[in-house]
Nucleic acid binder design. Structure first.
Lengths: 207, 207, 207, 207
DNA sequence: TATGAATGAGACTTCATTCAT
DNA sequence: AATGAATGAAGTCTCATTCAT
């Protein structure tokens, strides 16, 4: 007989996570104190530990947040017909992710998550697992393109997927470091790279 | 009136930095104590502060280590003749960087440096500065290729440079997270991407 | 206007005390949290405070538990005829107390009560009061023996009583520390001590 | 190449232990904060942890303090000739221990040590070990008396030793609880008990 | 120059207690 | 009466940095 409903609990938990995200983004994980999160979230010190067992647990929870990756995956899944269209969707999705001002904190915290993943198995698993799902999906898309004859047979679908992901990880880093990301230019470049690589005649993308 | 020579001092300093690199790689920056570095380096607690004013100063020094980037730059500079050859050199250099077991600690610490750069201006400047130099050099190489007619005129040299760097940053991350980096596969993929993008006819690389 | 009967209330209270006794015995008073008692007793956190105003109040209640001392006193009171028989009864009673496996928790918590009594007046009063009653009763028994001529006139009844109690306190401690208590051997020793001390000719006990 | 000598270190350590003893005696172990010990000892918070790894470690060190037990043992060892004299020495020694105002804190902390010993193996080992040594020595003394014909052959040396120790433990408790310890009366009682028990004719002690 | 003992501010976490439901 | 979520004060321990030797 719980005193609060599951949804109230979830709301409270999210309220803490949102506050933590802002704090971590602003000050970094290790320079954020639980007192900071408490102040930012409006809950009490004790309540924090009613929802998370540990400060580390909070980052893990942030890293585990599948909402973003899931959106990508389902976007990709929709493009079951055409591989090239699917890749276009992918570029678009990532492009938005890179520049969406609502995701600034998310991007900055991701980078801290990478650093933590080097020594925190839970975060490591979360990141690697999330990446692997996307990578499989992209590789499958390319393989489908090969089966359809849309994509050259001699490219390695998984290698391309891995490389694409790496590129977006690097761009995420650069965006967070304040490098200007000219989405149009990057988009053209990546379009050109992919189509040059994948299409039999190097036909222009979307053209 | 220094009691030790400049070179003795430099040796000592490097000894501390080497120890710090091992510690940071193993435990992360924030989970490494100055006591750890002292233990690993063999110098005393007090001595540490004769060479670095602050623990943060040690990461800054590691981030500032230009030795690696400089090697890349000079390698690139040598290929003044042929843009395509220059890019080949670049891929080779980065490929080695990614897989060189002697650079494992370096790669891991780089990632932590990225996280620190978000809030430490000195590290930020160091990373961004280092990247910018490489990026300029690559863009120049491509522009030279365009001037020579080797490279398509409608590509954006800087966009390509930025993208390339991003990709290698992402691969560095993946390597440190334990993802298998199949250098041959990645190399073929990147070769294909670059040549598909850059060369007028999408001619095969090095073929 | 109570919503539960007095006996329901008493049952509930005892249920909490029993749980607390197990917890305190296992983990010590200060390492037992109210949450532990809640878990062990099956009542809720809030309910605990309907029955006890404070965690300290729970130990006080346990220390105040007169059931054991009362049993001793009434046993002693029954032996109004013969002092030597009365002392025999006493040894028997204490011997059982020391070895009764049902009283293991009780003994362990007693020792913690001693430590608490040093700074908690209520517990102090409870322990000292309980001891004093027993001590008076024993001294009275001996004095009666002196009046009857059963016991040497030159012994100090109160000194003997105090010493006897001390011995049993020490044995309680030793039992709880895991020392083997050979009841037969201890019984013979104490029998010998008492009779050697008390009886005019040092006649053998119960012989 | 230590900066302080072993003896300086030992002095500092003892200074902390002395302060801790006062604090524990006054407020109890669990109601003493490390801040209290720091205040009372005059060292800094950090220094405390240079000498003890843990707050628990401080009690263990206090329990481990063999100085008192050793004094008793060597006193007993001196009385190699006469068992009855040896026991007299023992009573005297314990009598002084019980009433020595310089040992008030020690006695109070002992009782807390008993409570801790129930769940702290190091303290348990310390107390039990210390007691065992004394017990062996007393039993040996009595056995020697039996060999000499001074002591009745039918008493159990170890049982007597254990009982004696128990009595003094109990008296320590009572003394700390504020019970008046009339040393003369207790001494006569114990003298009578021991001699009634041990001597063939129940001859008067020291008479 | 080098040392390492000392410092003390501050972090994370626990837990007795309360109170709205 | 009973519940259990919420509270926040407080405690232990760590660690970057200093400074007398």
């Amino acid at each position: 007989m719980p005193k609060i409903t599951e949804s109230q609990r979830e709301t409270r938990r999210q309220q803490i996570l949102d506050a933590a995200l802002r704090c971590f983004s602003r000050d970094g994980f290790h320079n954020t104190t639980t007192a900071d999160i408490v102040r930012e979230s409006g809950v009490s010190q004790g309540t924090l530990y009613l929802y998370f067992t540990t400060k580390d647990d909070i980052i893990v929870a942030l890293a585990d947040d599948r909402r973003h990756g899931d959106a990508l995956l389902s976007a990709l899944a929709q493009s079951e017909q055409d591989a090239v269209d699917g890749l276009g969707l992918l570029l678009e999705f990532y492009g938005r992710s890179l520049s969406d001002p609502n995701r600034t904190d998310s991007r900055r915290v991701s980078i801290q998550g990478w650093a933590e993943a080097l020594r925190n198995p839970a975060i490591h698993a979360s990141i690697v697992g999330n990446t692997a799902a996307v990578r499989r999906q992209i590789a499958a898309l390319i393989a489908r393109g090969q089966a359809d004859g849309q994509v050259r047979a001699d490219v390695d679908p998984d290698g391309v997927a891995q490389t694409l992901i790496a590129t977006f990880q690097g761009l995420t880093l650069q965006a967070s470091l304040g490098e200007v990301i000219d989405l149009a230019a990057i988009g053209r470049t990546m379009d050109g790279m992919l189509l040059g690589l994948l299409t039999p005649a190097g036909r222009a993308a979307h053209a």
